[in-house]
């Protein structure tokens, strides 16, 4: 059986959807961060896929996914540092407890 573009694309889109769902429903900040990671990884898969199946003449998509991975790592590092920073005062990473600023 030959693997087509769609057979890779559907899992990546499902992954992206799971990421959005997780980000919106999870109450734990670390779990939200994991959901964000899922979304960013779905994007990386997408770029590599389109490049490999549709535009294999150049390497623009592969290069972009390399950069996207690096950016995702930087984002996670900053986010983790800030979550730890909050945890030190609130002793908690539950977003229902971190709600002192609201209208």
């Amino acid at each position: 059986m030959k693997l087509t573009l769609l057979m890779y694309l559907i899992p990546s889109l499902i992954m992206f959807g799971c990421g959005i769902y997780g980000f919106l429903t999870r109450k734990n900040m670390i779990a939200m961060l994991i959901s964000l990671e899922l979304m960013l990884n779905a994007v990386d898969i997408n770029f590599a896929l389109f490049n490999r199946f549709l535009y294999s003449g150049n390497h623009e998509g592969m290069l972009f996914s390399l950069f996207a991975i690096a950016i995702a790592a930087a984002e996670t590092a900053v986010a983790i540092a800030i979550i730890i920073n909050v945890y030190r005062i609130a002793k908690n990473v539950d977003i229902n407890q971190i709600n002192k600023l609201k209208f």
Binding site: F16, F23, G61, A79, N85, V86
Partner: peptide, 24 residues
Amino acid sequence: REAAAKYVMTAVFSSAILLMGLSL
């Protein structure tokens, strides 16, 4: 600290959405 946590979460979320748009 709370402001930074809210900012970084929404910033990463929006940049993930933007990157998805770019991949399409």
